[in-house]
Nucleic acid binder design. Structure first.
Lengths: 257, 257
DNA sequence: GAGTGGTCTAGACCACACG
DNA sequence: GTGTGGTCTAGACCACTCC
């Protein structure tokens, strides 16, 4: 077994983190660095505990922190796995897809098409640079999409994403991920694992040009969701601005329930 | 010490709940029934553990469940207390007040007045009856308020609340709770402790009569929050419908962050 | 110093998955 | 049966609070 012993001297960790937090943090870094692939099984908790020189209880607590963050999945009788969004859509739907149909049975809520409106690599405006911790040297991806259902336009969304992490993102693979969730696609195709998001919501009116483009009545009220997505390592890598038409859908903020 | 021993024979709990869940549940009921008043200190975890005939670790886990639910507060070196919203506004703000000023420094965001628009005890419409588990025999409180700031109308909210639990609610005390949070007021004045909520959000336009009444432009886009509030014992006791003007405010769904 | 909750340990036992 | 995670126990030690 690899040696990733945590304690090499008495003063390796001057920070004020508890032991299980330290273990959890270094484990998170190891996952981010691809030590185990998404879907791969980790060693069992006894082995891990020995590797980190902690007790099984402490290891368990560290692992549970990452389960809460969505980075790991534990299954009784099977093992501990690096979260893989594909294999776990239901969980991630609850976590990230909070726009849900009022009546999931209705046909008119089934998405019919995604239109790519533009796709560029540019220097971000200052506000976006700050959010994504970029400089005026850095290129970011700037793209916008429209999601249609048979009832008409559902969402319009605009994405700003760090160029470095999203190097492999292209018009083609963005449009072709189809069935997959956006963040699932980021993980499996681009190698970017999103760990948490920050969202704020406002009311707005659909802009006139979009009303015209998608034959929507004017005024059409929408909710505007602004979201910053962070990797498991807590780096802001994607900024999302989404306008949602909510006559057939609603936003459900609480995954807990 | 009172004897509230959990285990009196070998088959008291046929349910498939873990021990710490059982302990947590009965403890929650004891809190609901006023065994300890809000703000009062519970016995320490060793005593509690003995009372329930469980180990300290199990007792700790049961207590932490209630801390997560917001029913208890634990303070290192001091003790475990029944949550008291007054004494803990910051925590409950994060949990329940998700409409926050874009710029908390701005004067114009400070609330200036609350207007009571109506207050009745009526038989609820069928939809509300179902939500609140009421029959056509039961009376419910139906009231509406408008919250103003110097920038103008901020929210319009309509409340349906179970008559039995909200027996003590009157126009007067509702208007006079002033500085207190609504759910804090429910707890300290009415004895109703809210444990969790379910929310859904849609975009809407401020209705023409309200636009006129509050001198707002038309169309004014708003977010419409529908919320069901449950007691710590998980009974639905209040249904809230709120229209929020979000030009100076936004909705922040994630308390976790 | 006495009392509290918070962390950590070591190990027993149970429930579940798989061959 | 073997191996996994989930629960539960018993107790040591630490950090914080208040007297």
């Amino acid at each position: 077994m690899d040696n990733f012993s945590l304690i090499e001297s008495d003063f390796v960790f001057p920070q004020r983190l508890t032991l299980f937090e330290q273990v959890s943090k270094t484990l998170a870094e190891m996952i981010c660095h691809g030590k185990w692939a998404p879907g791969e099984m980790l060693p069992n908790e006894i082995e891990l505990a020995h590797s980190f020189n902690v007790s099984q209880g402490t290891m368990r607590r560290a692992l549970n922190l990452l389960v809460d963050k969505g980075a790991l999945i534990r299954r009784q009788g099977k093992g501990t796995f690096v979260a893989e969004m594909r294999a776990n859509e239901a969980h991630f739907q609850k976590r990230y897809i909070k726009l849900v149909p009022d009546d999931p049975e209705k046909d008119e809520c089934v998405p019919t098409a995604t239109k790519l409106l533009f796709f560029d690599r540019v220097v971000a405006p200052l506000e976006i640079q700050t959010i994504l911790k970029q400089t005026s040297e850095d290129l970011v991806v700037h793209t916008a999409r429209a999601l249609m259902a048979s009832s008409g336009l559902v969402t319009f969304d605009e994405i700003w994403a760090r160029g470095k992490e999203f190097e492999k993102l292209t018009q083609e693979n963005l449009l072709n991920h189809k069935e997959k969730l956006l963040y699932s696609f980021y993980q499996t195709e681009l190698g970017v694992s999103i760990g948490r998001c920050e969202e704020t919501i406002k009311a707005a009116l659909l802009p006139p040009n979009l009303c015209y483009m998608f034959s929507m009545p004017s005024p059409t009220p929408v909710i505007e969701i602004r979201r910053i997505a962070y990797t498991v390592n807590d780096e802001p890598v994607e900024y999302h601005r989404q306008l949602c038409i909510t006559d057939k859908y609603h936003y459900a903020p609480m995954p807990e329930a």
